[in-house]
C-alpha cells in the first residue's frame, strides 16, 4: 500500500497550497474559487480512501459529497451575485 500514501500526500499538499488562496484572496470570489478547487481535490482524495479501505460503499460517499459541494458552490455564487 505504500504508493497509496504517496498519492494521498501529493493531493494533501495540493489542498494546502490552495488554502493559501483561501486566506489571501483579495475578494470573496477568489476564496470561493479556491474552495471549489478544494472540494474537487477532496473528491479525488475520498475515492483514493475508498480504495485504501477496499470498500465500494465509500465511493457513494464521494459521489454525495460531489453533489452537495456543487450545490453549495452554486448557492454561494448566487448569493454573491445578489440573486437570492
Amino acid at each position: 500500500m505504500t504508493p497509496m500514501y504517496v498519492y494521498l500526500l501529493l493531493i494533501g499538499i495540493a489542498v494546502v497550497l490552495s488554502m493559501y488562496r483561501v486566506f489571501r484572496g483579495p475578494t470573496a470570489v477568489d476564496r470561493l474559487v479556491a474552495v471549489d478547487i478544494m472540494t474537487t481535490l477532496t473528491v479525488g482524495m475520498m475515492v483514493l480512501y475508498a480504495l485504501y479501505y477496499g470498500r465500494m460503499i465509500y465511493l457513494s460517499v464521494a459521489l454525495v459529497y460531489a453533489v452537495l459541494a456543487f450545490a453549495g458552490v452554486i448557492a454561494f455564487a448566487r448569493y454573491l451575485e445578489g440573486g437570492i
Partner: peptide
C-alpha cells in the same frame, strides 16, 4: 457549470 456561475458572479 460551477465555473460559469462563479465567473458570472465575479
Amino acid at each position: 457549470i460551477s465555473a460559469h456561475v462563479l465567473i458570472k458572479a465575479a
